[in-house]
């Protein structure tokens, strides 16, 4: 019969194994298939990266803002027919409410347009459409974007509420997997409007 201490030790070992395994991405990979690595560049490897990327994109909450929300039978839910296509270009909006007291930001019911001290930002089209999405981006540009908070790693700054300061802590393998998945989702043509900037503080 195992003692209480043995159970504690086993639990500690399991926690340590998980903690040491490199975070959510590694755990996802473990959960999704054999541990023997596929040959680099193979179809099998790409399929594994896409599957892991799907897990990461889903768990990281990318749909929360990059997929427009609609009212469903059980309340608001992401409209998966528009998955990851960003703020709908056709949507016209009145000016946002002025910030009041401690309330600093507001968002639309779609969760795709956000207003705050920075101005108004619209969530990007992450699908592989070449004209309006990430279709022309390289994997490295995607990684550099998340790491630097600048478009394609070198362009203008990405605006709130995109949590890139948290996501920059993903390792390269995680970000590559996410990009592999974003390349595999259906392309959707949706030209998201440019942000509207508030005047900078003087």
């Amino acid at each position: 019969m195992r003692s209480k201490w043995s159970r504690v030790a086993m639990t500690a070992a399991a926690v340590a194994l998980l903690a040491g395994a490199g975070g959510a991405g590694e755990r996802a990979a473990q959960a999704q298939g054999p541990t023997r690595p596929a040959a680099p560049g193979s179809q099998k490897e790409n399929a594994a990266a896409v599957a892991r990327g799907k897990y990461l994109v889903t768990a990281a909450g990318c749909h929360d803002c990059h997929t427009p929300w609609k009212m469903g039978a059980n309340g608001p839910e992401p409209d998966m027919s528009l998955a990851l296509s960003g703020h709908p270009a056709a949507m016209t909006l009145p000016p946002p409410p002025a910030p009041s007291g401690p309330w600093i930001a507001s968002s639309t019911a779609t969760n795709t347009a956000w207003a705050g001290p920075w101005g108004i930002s619209y969530t990007a089209n992450l699908t592989p459409d070449p004209e309006t999405g990430l279709g022309q981006w390289t994997e490295q540009q995607f990684i550099d974007t998340i790491r630097t908070g600048r478009r394609q790693g070198r362009g203008r700054e990405i605006l709130p509420p995109m949590p890139w300061p948290a996501f920059k802590n993903y390792n390269d393998a995680d970000l590559k997997a996410m990009f592999a998945y974003l390349r595999a989702v259906p392309a959707m043509k949706n030209k998201v409007p440019d942000p509207v900037l508030a005047a900078p503080p003087r």
Partner: peptide, 18 residues
């Protein structure tokens, strides 16, 4: 138990290594 001790030792070693 001997088994539990072995498990706890390996648990700590693996955990520490990782």
């Amino acid at each position: 138990t001997r088994r539990a001790r072995r498990a706890s030792v390996w648990g700590v070693v693996f955990g520490a290594l990782l």
